[in-house]
């Protein structure tokens, strides 16, 4: 399991700094080949992001320059100023943060409850419910998209954040499953002991189960945050007033007006990506751990 330290470790000290001196052994050659391949791989994935950052700091004359150059001829913050001028970045950041934060709250409240019912409460509904949870994970969201829209529309909630937030409070199948899998690994004796002590079921849940399940809950919280942060389709369907836009929709709307304002657009993209990047750097072990359990990508 990677640690936070691992990500901020300095560039690797490549062993093959001076290959020419001795006749390199076969092992050495193989290591050089391995370093080359893996560094190349990392660069291929990183490169598009580098161009995003570099374009954001370029002057227009430099942006529209063929052939393209990665290093800006002259660094400028003009694109950021322009982006702030044309897009209410702070407002969109706040809106997106609010939606993401509320979704996380909903997930953290609801999912462990349901997971507990599936993993640790001995009742007849556990198995059928588990099958339902798994089945809904496979369901294309398009199947329910239109009726759900009509429900919210009937409630007069289209245009508000409710359709984007409330579902999280009703439990997300992916996270319920993730936390349930984690809880299965918690010994029953711990819970039984509390029950014998006369603690109510909810008290047992709150004081014993929740603290133990913290790693799984944090993983779910991080992924929920990322999903809400980057979501496009739901805000596209439900938000129609520019003052309520999330960053996704704000960018989409900006591009619809200025299809070639690449400098400011890339600047806005950088601002939009930074919070996600920060969360990734801080919570990397939860990311990698969460993915490796195979529950989601």
């Amino acid at each position: 399991m990677p640690t936070i330290n691992a990500t901020v470790s300095p560039m690797p000290q490549v062993d093959a700094r001076a290959p020419g001196k001795r006749t390199p052994s076969r092992h050495r050659l193989r290591q050089i080949r391995r370093y080359t391949l893996v560094i190349l791989l990392a660069l291929v994935f990183l490169f598009p992001l580098l161009t995003m950052v570099s374009t954001a700091f370029k002057l227009p004359s430099d942006v529209f320059h063929a052939p393209p150059n990665l290093w800006p001829r002259e660094w400028t913050l003009a694109n950021f100023a322009e982006a702030f001028d044309q897009i209410p970045v702070w407002r969109y950041l706040a809106n997106t943060l609010f939606i993401s934060g509320m979704s996380v709250l909903g997930t953290v409240l609801a999912c462990p409850l349901v997971a507990y019912a599936l993993a640790k409460v001995r009742w007849r509904g556990a198995r059928p419910l588990l099958i339902i949870v798994l089945a809904t994970m496979m369901l294309p969201p398009q199947v329910t998209m239109i009726p759900i829209f009509l429900i919210w529309n009937g409630l007069g909630a289209v245009g508000t954040y409710l359709p984007l937030i409330i579902p999280a409070f009703l439990g997300t199948p992916f996270f319920i499953f993730l936390i349930r899998q984690f809880l299965l690994g918690v010994p029953d004796e711990l819970i039984e002991a509390a029950r014998i002590d006369g603690a109510s079921e909810f008290r047992t849940y709150a004081t014993i189960v929740l603290p133990i399940a913290r790693p799984a809950i944090i993983t779910a919280a991080i992924f929920q945050f990322m999903w809400a942060w980057t979501d496009f389709l739901n805000p596209l369907i439900y938000l129609n007033d520019a003052s309520t836009y999330t960053l996704s929709i704000g960018l989409y709307s900006f591009f619809g007006q200025n299809t070639v304002a690449w400098g400011p657009l890339m600047a806005a993209c950088v601002l939009f990506t930074l919070p996600a990047l920060l969360l990734f750097l801080l919570g990397q072990r939860f990311f990698i751990g969460g993915i490796s359990t195979g529950a989601f990508k």
């Binding site: 007069g156 245009g159 619809g256």
Partner: peptide, 20 residues
């Protein structure tokens, strides 16, 4: 006045019970 040069959003807003 709100400048909103977006045909899709215009329709989306008008096709809900709560317009903008």
């Amino acid at each position: 006045g709100v400048s909103s040069p977006d045909f899709q959003k215009q329709l989306t807003s008008m096709s809900s019970s709560n317009g903008s």
